[in-house]
């Protein structure tokens, strides 16, 4: 059965490493939903965090193929119960005078922050688990969403 997986890949910080990882996914036909790259405490390494919808067999393939790359130090699956997973959403919504306060009210419930406000629109910033972000976008679906951007998941093991 397919489900959302979060994978954390420690890679050597060399030129071309991201191309290798991304190229592998493309040519093996793995569909990646989100991918983030970040520095780590040790400047020789970077951390790639990615999410993808995979069943167990696909997961095994993706992990073992990725582990074969010379630049990959380790790859592991992260779970809700052993890791903190976070994503940032920036969402721009066109607002009229009437609906503005309603939107702020909903954002407050989700602990979202209004980071930009003009007469016609506002931008809300929201940090949280991907599920929370999904839920928020879902709830304000009937507002006039102009566009949004999500950073993709980043994660640290507990």
């Amino acid at each position: 059965m397919k489900k959302m997986r979060v994978l954390s890949i420690l890679v050597k910080n060399n030129a071309g490493t991201l191309t290798r990882v991304a190229g592998l996914f493309a040519r093996r036909g793995y569909n990646i939903d989100t991918l983030t790259v970040s520095a780590t405490k040790d400047h020789r390494f970077s951390k790639i965090t990615l999410t993808a919808e995979l069943d167990d067999i696909m997961l095994g393939q993706l992990m073992s193929q990725t582990a074969k790359l010379q630049e990959v130090v380790s790859i592991e699956e992260l779970f809700d119960h052993n890791s903190v997973l976070r994503e940032i959403l920036l969402i721009k919504v066109a607002v009229t005078h009437e609906c503005r306060s309603k939107l702020i009210e909903i954002a407050n419930i989700y602990k979202g922050v209004v980071v930009d406000l003009s007469r016609e629109s506002m931008i809300i910033e929201l940090t949280g688990k991907p599920q929370k972000i999904d839920a928020f976008i879902n709830v304000i679906d009937n507002f006039n969403i102009v566009n949004f951007c999500r950073t993709g998941v980043t994660a640290v093991q507990r």
Binding site: I57, G60, Q61, S64, Q65, A67, K68
Partner: peptide, 11 residues
């Protein structure tokens, strides 16, 4: 010798 050969083409 290659873990990625497991369950690749045949389960």
């Amino acid at each position: 010798i290659d873990a990625s050969e497991m369950n690749k083409n045949v389960i």
